[in-house]
Design a protein around this nucleic acid. Structure first.
Lengths: 340, 340
DNA sequence: CCAATTTTGATGTACGTAAATCAAAAAATC
DNA sequence: GATTTTTTGATTTACGTACATCAAAATTGG
């Protein structure tokens, strides 16, 4: 049996009350006594029974998710996963609130973060917009001891405790290698469709993509990036235009708005041998993968990201360790054969 | 606040003791009374606080893992992950025991399963050997209400509650498409290295592989399968021999023993352009992926499999629902760019 | 050395559930 | 209608921790 507070008290030769004072960092314990207790804790390998403690405290974990108000499949999926988590909240003792902020608007995000500092949630997950002000606001909250994880899009260089999302540079590199290998010895041009170069994850994907292309596939030339603003209509127009160029043999779509891309491909490229790699598995991209319009889909599992963020925030709130390997968000590569 | 047993008692107009009798299916409750309580439970949406219940019961979950005594990297990894889980067992209230049985030996597995029926663990995870006797033994245990999950290798058609492993047919299909696409328009022969055709997961991978090859890549001819018994030495000899055939342009290694494969490739194929796809990420395959000896690695994450098996067994033991999406074991595809 | 202060101990209640006991009430049997 | 049997209620203890209170002891300051 694992040791309890009683065992600690006995081993340290102090009373239960003193052990409690040490464990919950209450005042009124002499330094030497505190050390006796801490030694006993270490020697017996005591670990607080979190379930019992939470029961006694009647503890819940008020968590806040801050999401951009973007109208694309991925964000809808993310929202749906958060709603699923809310359904489980009574069993998990969480109390989850979602705040939507205008997309690509650092100031709005910062003001929400500042409000939260007053509200005292026990953890914050945010889809970060990459700006110095945001970084500063996050760092401030971390210093005030709020557990913070970034979701989907990271805030490199900030003090956030954890990032629940994929490595976007690796994603871009992977897309490049897949495209390069699929195209084999062919020479030609590659069209790249992004949402916006203002978003860090898109920039990083592009960075990884161009790096591998330059290093390993010199026969493939990357055309100037098309910025579709994650909007199907815009994407459709841009891609349809671009396909006027007969030299294009491959397409990498690294953002959202794939509905437009797929429509353009079906209209303009039925008779051409194009290799297409896109991000995010949705009903549309899935269908396109199956009918060979798309050759591979890179995906991040929004459900995993949300569940991971919650686990990490709870653990940080309790000062517990997380299982690192479990919290790594993997880049899923889907061909038509391994669709879930 | 979520309702407690007290609320149920009040709502149903009965005493706490009666609610307890209903909840824990103790005898001595009239049918009408039981229904009153059950109605109240439904109407208030009561769900038992598992943490509090476990605390009161002093419950632990005695779990058994049955593994084949195979000396390969994957099984070593699996064992290591189970040991990690054992380290967490006090926090997770589990009590995990591992039993090793001779590999590919249905009789041994069956006799272990029969012993367990007496020992009464609250859950069993096994790497199944695919044989009718094993199926029958598993079905018998399921009927005796033991939660059972298969691990890594499934037992199709049995009553096991869950399978914690990848879809091996999909894995084989994915390997075929990757190989086919990487090879592009080239014609030639493909060598396949397996462990043993007696193991279900290997058979399934081969099945998926040959199916896609036949459907979609008719220019690639699959050579007779080399059975390396997951042994590096045997694999080395077989592959080295096979590479005498100059028509080989691709290799699919669907089992273990990749150390031997890699050695053979480095000795015999330095000057050839071979495309190689292998299973299981180990130190060796990882290095080979980085130095371009291998082109892609398909992997199943043993840590995820173990943690998932434990979660599912605990949930089944408590009669709780599992988050299906969370328990799906994914086929990881690693190129040199997205290695963890 | 006494008083003021700090530190420690002893004890009780609570969290939500499990499990047991014994008495009381209701139902079934003859 | 009395007796047996079944069903129900009331109450208590326990799980491991948190938290509060009050008294007792130890330490500090003067």
């Amino acid at each position: 049996m694992r040791p309890t507070v009683h065992d600690i008290a006995a081993a340290a030769g102090v009373s239960l009350a003193t052990v409690d004072r040490v464990l919950n960092q209450r005042p009124g314990v002499r330094h030497v006594t505190r050390e006796k207790v801490e030694t006993a804790i270490r020697e017996l390998g005591y670990v607080r029974d979190v379930a019992a403690a939470n029961l006694a405290k009647g503890r819940t974990y008020p968590l806040v998710f801050i999401l951009p108000a973007s109208d694309n499949s991925f964000m809808h999926g993310l929202n749906a996963e958060i709603r699923q988590a809310v359904l489980r909240s009574s069993a998990e003792r969480t109390d989850i609130r979602t705040i939507e902020v205008p997309a690509f608007d650092p100031a709005a995000l910062v003001s929400v973060l500042e409000e939260l500092s007053r509200e005292k949630p026990c953890g914050i997950a945010l889809v970060a917009t990459d700006a110095p002000d945001v970084r500063a606001a996050v760092d401030r909250l971390v210093r005030e001891r709020f557990p913070i994880v970034t979701l989907v899009s990271d805030l490199t260089g900030s003090l956030r405790h954890h990032y629940a999302g994929v490595d976007n540079i690796a994603a871009g590199r992977t897309a490049a290698r897949l495209l390069g290998r699929f195209l084999g010895p062919r020479k030609g041009e590659i069209a790249v469709l992004a949402g916006s170069m203002l978003v860090r994850d898109h920039r990083e994907r592009l960075e990884g993509f161009t790096a591998v292309m330059a290093e390993e596939f010199p026969d493939l030339a990357i055309l100037p990036v098309l910025e579709g603003r994650d909007d199907p209509e815009v994407a459709h127009r841009l891609v349809a235009d671009a396909l006027g160029n007969a030299g294009i043999i491959g397409v990498y779509s690294l953002g959202a708005g794939n509905r437009g891309l797929i429509r353009a491909l079906k209209e303009k490229a039925v008779d051409r041998v194009l290799t297409v790699i896109a991000h995010e598995l949705t009903a549309h991209t899935r269908a396109a993968l199956i009918d060979n319009t798309i050759d591979a889909i890179l995906n991040q599992d929004a459900g995993h990201e949300v569940r991971s963020a919650i686990r990490v925030l709870k653990a940080k709130a309790d000062g517990l360790a997380v299982i690192e390997a479990q919290e790594r968000i993997r880049l899923d590569i889907f061909l038509k054969d391994n669709l879930p």
